[in-house]
Amino acid sequence: MSAILQVQNLVKNYGDFKAVKGVSFSIEEGEIFSLLGPNGAGKTTTISILSTLYMPTSGDTTIGGHSITKDPMGVRGIIGVVPQDLALYEDLTARENLIFWGQMYNLSGKSLTTRVDEVLEQIGLTDKAKDRVKTYSGGMKRRVNIGVGLLHKPRLLFMDEPTVGIDPQSRRAILDTVKDLNNQGMTLLYTTHYMEEAEELSHRVGIIDHGEMIAIGTQKELTQQVGEAETLILHIGENDDSEALAKTLKDIQGVQQATAVDHEVSVVCDEAEDVLAAVVTKANDRGIKIRSIDIREPNLEAVFLHLTGRALRD
């Protein structure tokens, strides 16, 4: 496999604020690469630079041999973009939207018509193609939003958090679409703050936080960074102080990290069984009722916690 995308020391500053701090990575042809990080980590800024929407402050990237700074039009011809927010004309029908965007990607005539029909079939909206987009459900709009990015059969597709704010059924359909596209040979750069999506979809994952790429590799390579550590997820009552509990649990021998998010406390430890009793005792001592406990094998959440001391959803 050869690299279709090579990012070299990418920097983006907005005045004094450094949104992207020297990010470097590459994506091989045919793989799904996920950028995983919490909100505000710099994922969307990075993807906006790579898709030529913003110019980097410094650094460069080549996509299919075209530089994003020197040959942005060359880049635009081979990439597809599915933005995080819907970017459609709601007063046009799905078909009219697809035809317009296809024309913007230099499709015309019979090839445009054929391709629009194929994409409508692919996103399952052939029957609703003549309805205006504003009459669609959120999930249907998301599918049209994705369809626009597929029209010109891009070699590399950027998908920026495509499952934010949609129902589980639509989310499942989108994840299946991503896998189908990859099986057809398309390379994808997928950004998300959902660890489960990155784990399910990705050949490799880059973990980004505060504009920096803090880890990169396959899921196995990344989880090895936290050794054999396991994670206890404690679900506690709505009125209990999760922050205080997390602080207390850090004192237990064998606990590496403990963080609180909403009514959950994540505890990274060497062996779950060894610390479980002490965790429950400490909670009881503070008068906190534990409703349930999950024990998880090493995962990307634990990696992020291990690297940053914070949960992904912080």
Binding site: T52, L53, P83, L86, A87
Partner: peptide, 14 residues
């Protein structure tokens, strides 16, 4: 504001 202008700007349209 609705994102279609950025989408146009990342298409092969100057």
């Amino acid at each position: 504001a609705q994102g279609t202008l950025p989408r146009l700007l990342v298409s092969p349209t100057n």
